[in-house]
């Protein structure tokens, strides 16, 4: 069960992580707690699996990479096998089975558009499936933080 302090910590870690030599000391000051106690609490949140990682959120486009959402219609009886093969591509970061005729949805990131297309072509040939690409034309929102304190959640 998350305490209200945990929720405050999670909101700060998601939205206000300082880029500094002593980021946790600064966060501890904001929370009015001891740095060692904060580190211990964060370790607990990691152990519980609530925090996946703490690190950089990169912008793939600014880094020059090409990223695209892909979808495919895969016969149900071999969807696991197809999904595992797609998972083996290091540029595939998300892969889900969904409730639609297009039942497998994944994202592919590659250094260039051509390289992405080569990977997709190879997958199509090897797996005997048709892969549709749904590139983003306009991004209205990418928010990777979840509001943890109830107050933030109300609109």
């Amino acid at each position: 069960m998350l305490t209200s302090l945990d929720r405050k910590i999670l909101d700060l870690l998601q939205n206000k992580f300082p880029i500094s030599i002593h980021p946790y000391r600064q966060l501890a000051d904001i929370l009015g707690m001891d740095e060692a106690a904060l580190l211990q609490r964060i370790q607990h949140l990691k152990d519980e699996g609530i925090i996946r990682r703490i690190g950089g959120i990169m912008d793939s486009r600014s880094l020059g990479f090409y990223s695209v959402l892909c979808a495919s219609e895969v016969p149900e009886e071999r969807i696991d096998q197809v999904a595992f093969r797609i998972n083996a591509e290091p540029g595939v970061t998300h892969n889900y089975r969904r409730n639609h005729r297009l039942n497998l949805w994944f994202t592919l990131t590659a250094p260039t558009r051509d390289k992405a297309q080569l990977i997709l072509q190879r997958l199509e040939n090897e797996l005997n499936i048709k892969i549709y690409t749904l590139p983003a034309e306009k991004v209205y929102k990418i928010k990777l933080s979840l509001p943890m304190q109830e107050d933030d959640y109300a609109d």
């Binding site: 990682r53 703490i54 690190g55």
Partner: peptide, 14 residues
């Protein structure tokens, strides 16, 4: 190039 430093949460567990 870097949007920010942050904790990434697991939705379900959170």
């Amino acid at each position: 190039l870097i949007r920010r430093l942050a904790a990434v949460l697991r939705h379900r567990e959170a």
